[in-house]
Design a protein around this nucleic acid. Structure first.
Length: 425
DNA sequence: TCTGGGGTCCTAGGACCC
DNA sequence: TCTGGGGTCCTAGGACCC
């Protein structure tokens, strides 16, 4: 029997919300959304109901969307919440209009990581070729796994679903297809807790009727442009000559689009990869101005650098390109970066370089977000010269640890005298 | 009262080198 | 006083994804 290439895409169902519902079964069946602000609602609950275990806290005690104030977006909505039109990436304020009675919970990253690790380990024990696509998604190469060919992959998919449920209590949806592109689309066909098997021959019947936006890699911009060309479905995309798409979208993207519409994708399942960059960013509770809110911004900036340095250290990486990101009140984004001579994971070095970058952007406008990024990463152990000392190693340099905090605070958002005051409003 | 935070990859121009 | 290519690195922005 010839062995077919069988690739699975597995997507956990409403992952963030489902994880919470493991601890809070009394919310089962209710509209619940995860996301939003930085307040620890679960901690508030625990304070107020310190005498009760989590699963006994009355449903009435949970905060509702209509009471929510803040700038967050929804990370995940339970299926009952989705009935109201509430979904991922929607602003909380808009969601509150659609479903005011929905319960709001914050993301518990620690818990999410535990469940993420658990379901991925479960999969690897059955099928070792797993590609990480974030906390709640993976690709799996079924091709050479025992049973991976039976019923086109359905038997193995069922085994994985059952094993994940037994270990975590969570459900997932799986698509199995000849490649990653189709598998990704297929995993959406029978959500939640579904399995969907697609063969090469199913292209016309199952893929071509779908909207072009269903292709992983066609986003809102490309979709709008395709619509302007009267291309709405994948079939309509496939009907256009590659040359036309290349003329419209450029050599690489146009050619890729054409291949995607014909269901062709040879990308392998990549089981290991190295990070390219790490970053920390934060959206302020209210827009801030470099001159007027200098102290506040400075403190936030330092905190971002320190957290980023801690991330790098914890994961064992150093980097050479240090950059900043701003989002202005009109949502326009500006980035600046610079590459330094020596790899670093040191908070002060990062802050110093990022401070240089800040001097090169317009700080007269109100800011909504500030971010710090380190790129050009290398493993700390692979780079000889990475200790914080090495970066500033003037032989006789005095230890400036105690005094430098002040110096760094002063040099941040420099020359603020030159910055015109913010427009009134 | 719209619109989070963490990533990847691509493009394109300029510097600089051979 | 005119005119090469190729290659790599750096930087800024943007599309897209989870």
């Amino acid at each position: 029997m010839t062995r077919l290439r069988r690739i699975a895409h597995l997507d956990m169902d409403a992952f963030f919300a489902s994880v919470e519902l493991q601890r809070l079964p009394q919310l089962q069946g209710l509209p619940v959304v995860i996301g939003g602000g930085k307040r620890r609602i679960d901690e508030m609950l625990r304070e107020r109901h310190a005498d009760l275990p989590l699963h006994e806290i009355p449903v009435d005690a949970f905060p509702r969307l209509k009471d929510y104030v803040g700038r967050g977006v929804i990370t995940t909505a339970t299926y009952p919440a989705r009935q109201f039109g509430v979904g991922s990436a929607m602003g909380m304020m808009k969601a509150a209009l659609l479903c005011p009675q929905a319960i709001v919970l914050p993301v518990d990253f620690e818990e999410i990581r535990k469940f993420s690790y658990a379901f991925k380990e479960t999969i690897r024990e059955i099928a070792p070729q797993v590609e990480d696509r974030g906390v709640d998604e993976v690709y799996i190469d079924f091709t050479d796994v025992p049973g991976g060919q039976r019923e086109g992959g359905r038997v193995l998919a069922r085994l994985i679903q059952k094993s994940i449920f037994e270990r975590t209590g969570l459900t997932c949806s799986i698509g199995v297809a000849p490649n990653k592109l189709i598998a990704k689309m297929a995993s959406e066909f029978n959500k939640p807790n579904g399995i969907s098997i697609v063969y090469d021959d199913d292209l016309q019947a199952k893929i071509w009727p779908l909207a072009v936006r269903k292709i992983n890699g066609i986003g809102p911009k490309a979709e709008a442009k395709l619509h302007a060309l009267e291309i709405r479905t994948i079939g309509e995309l496939a009907a256009r000559p590659a040359e036309e798409l290349i003329a419209q979208f450029g050599r690489a993207y146009g050619a890729w689009m054409h291949e995607a519409a014909w269901g062709r994708d040879e990308r392998p399942v990549v089981t290991e990869s190295e990070p390219v960059s790490m970053s920390r960013e934060t959206t302020f509770e209210r827009d801030l101005h470099a001159a007027r809110d200098r102290a506040e911004l400075s403190a936030i900036f330092t905190d971002l650098c320190e957290r980023l340095a801690a991330d790098l250290a914890r994961k064992g990486y150093v980097g050479r390109t240090i950059g900043i990101k701003l989002r202005y009140d009109d949502f326009q984004i500006a980035t600046r970066d610079m590459t330094i001579e020596h790899y670093t994971a040191d908070a002060k070095t990062i802050r110093q370089a990022a401070g240089q970058c800040l001097k090169r952007v317009d700080l007269s406008r109100r800011l909504r977000l500030l971010g710090v990024r380190v790129g050009k990463l290398a493993r700390a152990q692979d780079v000889a010269d990475t200790s914080p000392r090495a970066e500033t190693a003037a032989p006789a340099a005095p230890d400036t640890t105690s005094g430098s905090a002040t110096a760094l605070t002063l040099d941040l958002f420099p020359d603020t005298q030159d910055i015109p005051p913010a427009a009134p409003g």
